[in-house]
Amino acid sequence: MTDTADNIIVATDVEKYYNNGALHALKTVNTTVKRGEVVVIVGPSGSGKSTLLRTLNQLETIESGTIIVDGVDMYDRNTNINKLRENVGMVFQGFNLFPHKTALENVMLAPLKVAKRPLAEVTEHARELMYKVGLADRMENYPSQLSGGQMQRVAIARALAMRPDIMLFDEPTSALDPEMVGEVLDVMKSLAAEGMTMVVVTHEMGFAREVADRVLFMEEGALLVDASPDVFFDTPPHTRLKQFLSKIL
């Protein structure tokens, strides 16, 4: 296989503006993600991490450049974006669980209504996932009856229920009380161990060092560093990264 066939995400010359061009949120971003790779994005607040992540499932559109996900050009006129999103799960900082559905229903909804898989199969798969994220005893609870850590784990199960090839995480532990961060990171680690392709925006440097294959550093919309965790943390190849790390570590 050629190198490009192994790249499940290829972003080329991505430009993104907000406020009618007044804010240049992504400045000629180029990056690739290999199948099975875990890529962590770090950077100061407002540097464009979320924006970059959200362009990968088109929750944000881009002004120019191309993004190819699993061989599909996202901005091709003929691309069915809903179909593409089925293959790209997303986990949000604020969980965004559906409050009017139980935990299990949250997990089952998209497979039933979008993928139109049979109820018996969906139910079994959803139960498996709830078990996997350690919430076998919480299936019938509504989100309002769950802790933050539990909600985030349901949200991960919900995204996994569509059997995606790629998972995007936007600061999945930032809204959690410290004692709940671990349980969510553990689920993410086991997911990485299973070979899931993951793009993770996080401030958990321990997770980045332990789990990431590559770590990216963004500042003011530009991708400044793309390195292995060892290089990234031990011999930071950019002065801005050095400054950033000295502030947070």
């Binding site: 499932n57 929750l59 998209a110 979008v114 995204a159 569509m162």
Partner: peptide, 23 residues
């Protein structure tokens, strides 16, 4: 309804009408 609800629904592959109807 918080915008995150629509985003979560769309990120799961729901079309706009489906997201409206179910979420």
């Amino acid at each position: 309804i918080p915008v995150g609800q629509m985003e979560a629904a769309r990120s799961l592959g729901m079309s706009y009408p489906k997201a409206m109807t179910f979420i």
